[in-house]
Design a protein around this nucleic acid. Structure first.
Lengths: 220, 220
DNA sequence: ACTTATATTGACCGATCGGTCAGCACAATC
DNA sequence: GATTGTGCTGACCGATCGGTCAATATAAGT
């Protein structure tokens, strides 16, 4: 029974798997679930196609595994944001966390975007469940801030969507952004400049006096 | 020679073509270029597959035709925005025009998004050419406004991208938005509420005193 | 009525799709 | 050294891919 013997996961297996996952994330993020082919993934991973199936079981299993991995990264960022403090720090943290997330995992973010574009066939439960609750709880906090006069009265959902979209844009539309900027990729200075801009506009636009406390995130 | 005889486009042909284009736009927008199949398009159009090829020539020709159609719609909206007036009206018009565009042509917008996600293989020239110029010319105007003290000094490109992304979000991420809102689609009230919110936050965030002139766009 | 151009489509092509499987390589166990 | 279990992969499967083509139907021109 293999269920009993631990066989403590040969170290090579993990390497092979992450190799496959990396290749698959690139391909799926570009072409979506249906547009991606196992052959292309295999080629990019430098393995025969049958090997992909051997490790991942099926195209769908590989895809949902990638989706889950990305959602965990995403959740980790979300739970790091403590809603205790003032609006300025919370929103500022949220903006910068999402910018970093997109820069750190560009393929994963695009994968997510392609899934949503296709109508979220694999994520509809997550969207209507976990994520919806997260939005609702955050919306309640924002509403409190408005009631306390800490910020303008705005629809919290639109605000959350605004931050989401404005940050997401630079990873999903990287082809458009670099096409227009005439640059291959965003530099670190770009990212910092964009983050500061979004911080400025969104906080000020919501009537939040920007606290100097967000300096704790800026390096120099 | 058919080149000489005009044969003034039989009326049925036009109907068939728009029927195919509609079906194709739906399928391409969901699955992207590679993920879409002519068979699915044909089924949705209620025609045999060979008929699609007869009218459109090839999958690629059909796809680029859809892209061009969407870009023309898009350009029409852009050129309607006259940069003569004050920042408040121009930005407000831009926000609302983009919201309307996304609501009017949701499939076309998603098609565009899928193309960019895939790395813009068919649109790289357009992005680095026409669109880049458009952004540059608008950026120059915004920079003037800043110099004249009409608004805060912000990077105009980030501002344009912000408006772009914030509006686009509600069409491309409609699956996510409706999943979170628990509604099938946005109502007219939603769209008006979102537009007003974006107007409020972005104008205020850029230090623009919101002119009452934007009332000309609000019906009641 | 006869010709001619166009519209329509079933049948088919080679290529590729996701997935299966038998068989080989290789190390560990007995 | 024979046995066993796992890693690995070439060969193959039916289905579907984009695209071609011959045949037929329909309409237009003469």
């Amino acid at each position: 029974m293999t269920a009993v013997s631990v066989t403590h996961e040969s170290p090579s297996r993990e390497k092979v798997e992450t190799n496959i996952l990396m290749a698959a994330e690139e391909v799926f993020s570009q072409y979506g679930y249906r547009g991606a082919s196992l052959q292309v993934i295999a080629d990019r991973a430098g393995l025969p196609k049958a090997n992909i199936l051997y490790y991942m079981g099926s195209k769908q299993a590989l895809y949902v595994r990638l989706l889950n991995r990305m959602m965990h990264r995403w959740n980790k960022v979300l739970e790091d944001i403590t809603p205790e403090s003032d609006p300025a720090t919370v929103l500022s943290d949220f903006i910068r966390a999402k910018m970093v997330l997109g820069q750190r995992y560009p393929e994963g973010s695009k994968l997510f975007a392609a899934e949503i574009l296709a109508g979220a066939p694999f994520l509809s439960d997550y969207l209507a469940g976990e994520l919806r609750e997260w939005v609702a709880s955050r919306a309640a906090i924002i509403r409190q801030w408005s009631a306390q006069g800490k910020m303008d009265t705005v629809d919290p959902k639109w605000l959350i969507f605004l931050i989401w979209s404005a940050t997401q844009h630079y990873t999903e539309y990287s082809a458009q952004v670099s096409g227009i900027l005439g640059r291959d990729a965003l530099t670190e200075e770009d990212v910092e400049s964009i983050s500061a801009f979004l911080e400025h506009v969104i906080l000020k636009g919501c009537g939040i006096t920007q606290a100097s406390t967000n300096a704790h995130l800026v390096e120099k």
